[in-house]
Every structure is written in structure tokens, then in C-alpha cells.
């Protein structure tokens, strides 16, 4: 029997929600698993059948990772053994990550948006050049690591905060230019000209007319790049060794020949890596909704 229009619409709607729910489960499950594991005692890390929500939830993982509480564990012979955390420095890594990603992201958005303004208004880069700029991002980072580490070692930039800041700033600049350009393009030229003919200087026009209109877009760009730099692993791993450790690199230290596979601790650290981004996202969510929906300027 043929469906009526309403039935068809409902069926389609049901299907859509089904697909979205399915998608949500796939995306959300790793996050759920991370949070869940972070509260599990070590006996449940590898349990089979898996423990989804622990009945013996503990803060032990967090205490060990973040509060440096020494811990005793039983080894395979059943003897108590001190578990050392000598290699792990999560707070230092958090500090490094915060400094490096915030500085690099700020520089990237600052320079990127200025460049984007020039491209949008004065065509200082041709379309071909803009594409080349984006192509920089198409080079696999691993290809760059060898030449850059040689270069960095002779410049004394290996294993330094400055070295990573410079690298993150330069590698994210193309995104910053492209993203902020799309927001600046949204501001009609005529709006600036209206300000100009009313006697506003160039700087004044940018400050009073352009900037307020692209602010949300720049905030969205900032968060996007912050996520990139905050979670960057490869370059940080290979260009910094011991003196400067970032959070993703720190995270990798919880799996290795000396440490074993300490999933609970790793999950506790992962939650600590994720939370700051979520908090930042919450604080600026008003801007995000506007920034990512574009077209706030009524024409």
C-alpha cells in the first residue's frame, strides 16, 4: 500500500534519526570508553567480557597520574612491587602544551587574519598562490621531519619551546589564512567604504567595522587551530626529546617496554588532555555557533 505524504515524511525522519544515532554512537563510544576506563581499577582494564561501567570505580588512576601518588602493584609472582613514575611529568607536559599551543595559535590567527585581509581586499596573493599555500598542508609532516631536525639541530632549536612554537605557527598558518579569509570575504566591501567616506581612517574602519563582524569567525578559527596544535603528536615526538614534552607525547609514555600497558592511567591522562579543549569550547560556544554558520552579515 502506498504511503501518504505524512507517513513518508515520518518514515524519512525516523530513518534520519536512526542514522544520526548510529553515527553518534560510533563517534561517542571512544570518548565514553576513555572516561569509563579512567575510573577502572587495574583488574578491569583488560577484563573479558569488558566492563563498561565499573562497579569498583576508583580515582586511583587520576591520583597516580596527576597527583604523583606512588603505587604498589602485584607482579606475576604475587609480590608487591613499587610502581615508579619517574619518566612521567604530566603537569610539566600540560604547561608546555598550553604555552606552545596558545602562543602558536595566537600568532597563527593574528598573522593569518592580517594576511587574509590583504588577500580579500587587495588581492596580495593570487588564487594560485592561495592554493599553493594550502598545498603546504598536503605534504605529509613526516617528510619534513628529517630536514627540519637537521636544520633545528644546527640552530639549537631541537627540544625547545621556541622550536615547536615556530613550527606549529608556520604549519597552521595556511588554515588560519583560508579560514579567516572566508569570514572577511563575508563583510561587504561597501560597509568599509561607507565608514571611509564618513571619515574613518583605514585602521579605524578595521577596528570598528571589520573586526566586530569577523570576531566570531576568528574565535572559531582560533579554536580549530588550537585543537590542531594541542593534539599534534608526530612533530612533537620527533623534534623534542626530553627537555620539552607535550601532552600527546607524554601520553605515549604510558605504553612501552618499561611501563607495560597502563590503560587506566593513560585514560586518566587523556581525560586531562581533552577537558581543557572542552572547557574552551564551552566558554566560546556562542561565537562558535555564529562563526561556523557564517552569513551573519545581512546584505
Amino acid at each position: 500500500m502506498a504511503m501518504t505524504k505524512t507517513q513518508r515524511r515520518n518514515a524519512f525522519s525516523a530513518f534520519r534519526y536512526l542514522m544520526l544515532t548510529f553515527w553518534l554512537l560510533i563517534v561517542a563510544f571512544p570518548i565514553f570508553w576513555m572516561v569509563s576506563t579512567s575510573f577502572k581499577p587495574d583488574s578491569e582494564w583488560f577484563a573479558w567480557p569488558p566492563v563498561y561501567i565499573s562497579e569498583n570505580a576508583t580515582l586511583q588512576n587520576y591520583l597516580v597520574v596527576w597527583a604523583d601518588v606512588s603505587e604498589y602493584a602485584t607482579n606475576e609472582k604475587g609480590e608487591l612491587q613499587t610502581y615508579t613514575q619517574s619518566l612521567q611529568r604530566p603537569w610539566e607536559a600540560l604547561g608546555n602544551s598550553a604555552i606552545i599551543s596558545v602562543i602558536a595559535t595566537t600568532l597563527s590567527v593574528l598573522f593569518g587574519s592580517v594576511l587574509a585581509y590583504g588577500v580579500s581586499r587587495y588581492q596580495i596573493l593570487s588564487e594560485g598562490r592561495m592554493f599553493q599555500l594550502l598545498m603546504l598542508r598536503m605534504v605529509p609532516p613526516i617528510v619534513l621531519v628529517a630536514p627540519i631536525s637537521i636544520w633545528y639541530s644546527s640552530l639549537g632549536l631541537l627540544d625547545t619551546i621556541l622550536g615547536l612554537v615556530m613550527l606549529y605557527f608556520l604549519t597552521t598558518l595556511p588554515y588560519a589564512v583560508w579560514m579567516s579569509k572566508s569570514f572577511i570575504d563575508e563583510v561587504p566591501r561597501e560597509m568599509e567604504q561607507a565608514a571611509e567616506i564618513l571619515g574613518a581612517s583605514r585602521a579605524r574602519t578595521i577596528w570598528e567595522v571589520v573586526l566586530p563582524l569577523v570576531r566570531s569567525g576568528l574565535v572559531a578559527t582560533f579554536l580549530f587551530i588550537l585543537i590542531l596544535t594541542w593534539s599534534e603528536y608526530l612533530l612533537a615526538l620527533l623534534l623534542s626529546k626530553t627537555a620539552v614534552v607535550t601532552l600527546p607525547v607524554e601520553l605515549s609514555k604510558y605504553q612501552g617496554s618499561t611501563e607495560g600497558r597502563v590503560y587506566g592511567r593513560q585514560a586518566a591522562l587523556s581525560v586531562g588532555i581533552t577537558l581543557p579543549l572542552i572547557v574552551v569550547g564551552m566558554i566560546i560556544r556562542k561565537h562558535l555557533a555564529r562563526g561556523f554558520s557564517f552569513g551573519m552579515v545581512r546584505r
Partner: peptide, 20 residues
Amino acid sequence: KEPGDRDLGMVFQSHALFPH
């Protein structure tokens, strides 16, 4: 001379009001 120094006023097709 800059547009602002020409003793002119201009009305644009798009109105170009400052939305903020």
C-alpha cells in the same frame, strides 16, 4: 584625496549599515 576628505556623502545600494 581620501574619500573621507572630499566633502561627500554616499548612499549605497546595499545600504551598508553597520549590523553590530
